[in-house]
Simulated scan of single mutants.
Amino acid sequence: MKQKEKESYIQAMLYVAKIDGIKKEEELRVIRELAEKLNVENIEQKIPHLSNELFEGKELRDVLSHVHGRGNKLALIYQLVVLAYADGIYSPGENDALRRICAILHIEFEKLYEILELVEEYQQFEKHVTEVLEV
C-alpha cells in the first residue's frame, strides 16, 4: 500500500471520528493502532495536519480517491465501522457518513450492513468472553 493510500485511510478515519463533534481518546487510540499496522511514520505529527486539511474543506471524494482495489476499500470500511463503535455508540451521523463513503468508493450498502453485523457480533463475543473469564 502506498503512503498516500495509508494517509487516506487515516484521514477517512479522522473524518468519521469528527462526525459526532469530538474526537474521543478511544477513537484516537483506534486511529493510532491502524497507523501502526500500516507502518505510517510520524503519526502524531500527521494527525493534526490531516485533520486540519479536513477542517479547511478538503473534499471527502479527494481523500478517498487514493484508495484503490475492492479489498482495500472493504478493509477501510471495516476499520471505519470499528472506529464508529469505539465510543460504544453508532450514531445516525456516523451511519450517514459511512453510507456516503460507500457510495464514493462504489461499495454496495449491503456490504456495509454485513460489516456492521460482523463488528457487532465481535463486540458481543468480546463482552461474553470477559463475563465468562470474569476479567
Rank of each mutant, 00 (worst) to 15 (best):
Q11E: 13
L112N: 04
I10Y: 12
G21Q: 07
D96G: 06
I115Q: 12
L28A: 14
V81E: 01
K58H: 03
T130M: 14
I89P: 00
L105F: 07
D62S: 04
A84L: 03
K23L: 15
I19S: 01
R29F: 12
L28S: 11
D62N: 03
E110C: 04
A35R: 05
S51M: 06
E117P: 01
K4H: 08
Q3K: 13
G57A: 02
E44F: 07
V135W: 06
I19W: 02
L83Y: 00
L14V: 05
G69M: 02
A35E: 07
E33H: 14
H106W: 10
V67R: 01
S8F: 00
H66G: 00
L14Q: 09
G57M: 03
A86K: 05
V135K: 12
H128Y: 08
N95S: 13
Q45D: 15
D87W: 13
K4P: 04
K4Q: 14
Y9G: 01
E26D: 13
N72K: 01
E56I: 07
A86P: 03
I104Q: 11
N42M: 10
K18H: 10
V16G: 03
A86I: 06
L28Q: 15
I77N: 04
H128R: 15
Q11F: 08
E36H: 15
L112G: 04
R70W: 04
P92I: 06
K18L: 05
E114G: 09
E53S: 06
A86Q: 05
L76P: 08
K4E: 14
A17N: 05
I10K: 11
Y90T: 04
Y113P: 02
V16C: 02
V129F: 07
H128L: 12
F55P: 00
Y78E: 14
V82H: 00
Q123R: 15
G93L: 15
V135G: 07
V40N: 10
R32T: 08
E53K: 14
L14G: 12
E44A: 12
K58G: 03
K24P: 03
E59F: 00
E5A: 09
I89V: 13
R70E: 04
K46F: 09
G57N: 03
V132L: 11
Q79R: 13
V132H: 07
G71Y: 00
V40W: 12
G93W: 11
E108N: 09
K6P: 06
P48A: 11
V82T: 04
Y122G: 01
A35M: 07
H49G: 08
L64N: 02
L50A: 05
K23W: 10
Y85R: 06
Y78Q: 14
G57R: 01
G57Y: 06
E110F: 09
N39L: 11
D62L: 02
D20V: 09
H106E: 15
S8L: 01
S91C: 12
I19G: 02
H106Q: 13
Y85G: 08
N95R: 15
F125L: 15
F109C: 07
K73S: 02
Q3L: 13
E134F: 06
E121R: 15
L60D: 03
V40A: 08
N72L: 00
L112Y: 05
N52S: 14
V63G: 00
E126M: 14
V67T: 04
V132Y: 12
E25N: 13
R70Y: 08
E110T: 13
V129S: 06
I115T: 14
E36Q: 15
S8E: 02
R32D: 06
